[in-house]
Write a protein that binds this DNA or RNA. Structure first.
Lengths: 144, 144
DNA sequence: CCGTTACTAGTTGCGCACAACTTAATTGCG
DNA sequence: CGCAATTAAGTTGTGCGCAACTAGTAACGG
């Protein structure tokens, strides 16, 4: 689809570097909440959707139990999350918010605007980028 | 620059997910070479530029010595790279390719095309994505 | 009903990332 | 020159990501 020497390599590296730069941008705001970026993503899903199995959380975040189990254990240790076995299917574990976890939502409310201000893209460019990243993810994941 | 509730969050997550998906796409090809993706990036810089200090390598890859030192040590253990103190400035360490490291370039030559074929973007879209990621990186890093 | 197969979480091990710190060398300023 | 400030690389500690594996549960086919 493209000459193989430079461009697509550059795109992949740009992706890798831009992703790390963006999570670095979140770091100060999230440090104040005591969260890492992946923990923040998990909390966002919980704030939006409430109780959820580890499996479904993994599907949404594109992470497996090898990553999520210890991450959720740390959130549980912080008192933000509780975990309990599913009743109908005892293989599953259902993750839910504690009161402290629910309360954190308000403190985290200001985070996205702090980020948006720092990234110098127009609405159109945001939408374009979103579209292109979606295409990349779709084509890469279907390639498996 | 944008309503703070959804879009920019999605973009950041898309970036995070797309980056991991892309490195996952490299994995089979790089496994065959015995390299991880960050190791492959370091080798690419060495193939292009020859001897380089750890500092300059870090500037190019946007990584610090905390990441590079152990990574380069592993490449050295594999016999792909040698490290020696700079003569004029003994604080620096100059990284260079061994014969085995140089030879690996030919085996790695086919990697980029394998990736490009799997990502379903036109040349224009690749260029757009490259441009937008560059803007993100630039605005994020200058924000520091 | 029973055994095989599939599925869900969790664990282990390794290699990043990154913050914080250490060591050693250089630079700069009085 | 002499010493403080700066710089380069390395070390330590924590938290991902992901492969490979384990334990326990559910589903299914005969």
């Amino acid at each position: 689809m493209v000459e193989p020497t430079g461009l697509e390599q550059m795109v992949c590296f740009q992706l890798y570097a831009a992703s790390r730069a963006m999570t670095g941008l979140y770091r100060p705001a999230l440090d104040a909440l005591g969260l890492t970026y992946p923990q923040y993503l998990a909390m966002r899903v919980l704030w939006q959707r409430g109780d959820i199995t580890v499996r479904d959380l993994g599907t949404i975040l594109d992470l497996d139990s090898g990553t999520l189990s210890p991450l959720l254990k740390r959130l549980e240790t912080q008192g933000l999350v509780r975990r309990e076995r599913g009743t109908t299917d005892e293989r599953t574990v259902i993750v839910g918010l504690t009161d402290r976890g629910t309360a954190l939502r308000d403190q985290a409310a200001h985070v996205p605007e702090r980020i948006a201000c720092a990234v110098d893209l127009t609405d159109d460019e945001f939408a374009q980028l979103h579209h292109l990243l979606g295409k990349v993810r779709a084509s890469v994941t279907t390639t498996i």
